[in-house]
C-alpha cells in the first residue's frame, strides 16, 4: 500500500502510522501520547499550518492531538484497508 506523509491526508482520512522520522525528543513525546507504529488515526481537521488527528480507541473518544505541519510531514502513514480492519467496533463515526 502506498506510503505517504500524514500532512498530505485530507480531513476524514483514516490511516495507520508506518514510521516516525523525528528527532528523539519529539518522537518520545508522540510515542508517549500513543502515536506508535501501527496506531490507527483519523485526520479530523487540516489547515495550512497544522493537522489535527484523533487516535482511534474503543470508546470512540480517542485522544485528539494537534501537530504542526512540519511534524505531520515527518510521520509516514498508509491508508487503512477497510477489509483488514479490526471490525469489533474499533471506531465508528
Amino acid at each position: 500500500m502506498a506510503r505517504v506523509k500524514l500532512s498530505s491526508i485530507q480531513q476524514g482520512g483514516r490511516v495507520r502510522v508506518v514510521e516516525i522520522l523525528l528527532d528523539s525528543k519529539l518522537q518520545t513525546r508522540l510515542i508517549n501520547m500513543g502515536l506508535t507504529r501501527g496506531a490507527t488515526i483519523t485526520v479530523i481537521c487540516r489547515n495550512h499550518s497544522s493537522t489535527i488527528i484523533m487516535l482511534n480507541s474503543s470508546s470512540g473518544y480517542g485522544r485528539t492531538i494537534a501537530l504542526s505541519k512540519d511534524v505531520a510531514e515527518r510521520i509516514i502513514v498508509e491508508a487503512v484497508d477497510p477489509s483488514t480492519e479490526n471490525c469489533n467496533g474499533e471506531f465508528q463515526t
Partner: peptide, 27 residues
C-alpha cells in the same frame, strides 16, 4: 479494552469549536 463497555453507539462527537478554531484566519 475488555473492561470498557459502550452503552450507546458512542463516538465521533464532532466539536464545532474545533472546526471554527482550526480555520486559518477566522480561528
Amino acid at each position: 479494552q475488555p473492561a470498557v463497555r459502550l452503552l450507546r453507539g458512542a463516538g465521533g462527537e464532532r466539536s464545532i469549536l474545533l472546526e471554527v478554531f482550526s480555520r486559518p484566519i477566522a480561528g
